[in-house]
């Protein structure tokens, strides 16, 4: 049976992980490769690296980092942040990433989705969508959630699927950082509306939240950052819990 995926997300700035980590046996908590290896050992199913600086000067640092990750990591990983062109994608994929995640650049120029899918395959293209519930409507936000657009989330998800996206990473800004659970309604609506995998993101605070999102929506995967970084929910505990709750997960 196909398993539901658990995906830790690592924020990268200048080649280092940003948030603090309290893993005791990690040599260098700021080294993304060390942290990634730790997650792999714990049973993460995939990893997402998000370059939050993503300035031009940092692209070289990022590609060097991606090469290093690819040498050390034996599970699939996605790289996102500041990817604006097919040339950016090419650098990241050639460095060894399995997928790229695009967000604002896809909103600005939706054809980019098709161009990446045609050149590297749909499975490479993760379209990340930051969405917020405003005045009774789920709306797409860009530039790290700072700028609202007029695009309705439900319209955008269908469009990105048609354009060739392989997966949708859906982050609810209302829930992100709140630790009160995933945005079940919009995650469910989106996962019902498209025929590509949806990764639920934003709001995970407890193991039960993961159970909810897998039972109440068709999400294929759930992503979280801080609860994994700070060791609040160890991945093996989460997987064991989900397995007892009869949710298909990959246990080690």
């Amino acid at each position: 049976m196909l398993k539901k995926r658990i995906i830790p997300c690592l924020d990268i700035r200048d080649g280092r992980t940003v948030k603090g980590i309290n893993f005791i046996d990690i040599r260098d908590a700021g080294d993304p490769v060390e942290l990634a290896k730790r997650y792999v050992q714990e049973g993460a199913d995939e990893l997402v690296f998000l370059d939050i600086t993503a300035t031009h000067e940092n692209r070289k640092t990022l590609s060097v980092l991606v090469e290093k990750i690819s040498r050390e990591i034996n599970i699939p990983f996605t790289v996102g942040g500041g990817i604006n062109s097919l040339a950016d994608v090419s650098v990241i994929i050639k460095a060894g990433a399995d997928k790229v995640s695009i967000n604002s650049s896809a909103v600005k120029r939706p054809e980019l989705i098709t161009e990446i899918a045609e050149q590297f395959g749909s499975q490479c293209v993760v379209v990340a969508i930051d969405t917020k519930f405003v005045n009774g409507e789920w709306i797409v936000y860009v530039h790290g959630g700072r700028i609202p657009t007029e695009i309705k989330t439900m319209d955008w998800v269908k469009q990105v699927e048609e354009l060739g996206a392989g997966e949708i990473l859906l982050t609810s800004m209302n829930n992100d950082g709140m630790k009160t659970g995933f945005a079940l309604e919009i995650t469910n609506s989106v996962s019902q509306a498209v025929n590509i995998p949806v990764i639920a993101s934003g709001g995970a605070g407890t193991k039960e939240h993961f159970k909810e999102v897998f039972l109440q929506t068709k999400a294929s995967a759930a992503l979280a950052a801080s609860i994994f970084h700070f060791g609040e929910i160890p991945i093996p505990d989460l997987k064991n819990y989900l397995q007892t709750e009869k949710i298909p997960v990959r246990c080690l």
Binding site: M1, L2, K3, R5, D45, S122, Q123, G166, E167, N195, I196, P197, S220, A221, R250
Partner: peptide, 13 residues
Amino acid sequence: PPEELVPHMGWNN
């Protein structure tokens, strides 16, 4: 056949 999500993507036994 498109009875489930296609591609088959992820971990399976």
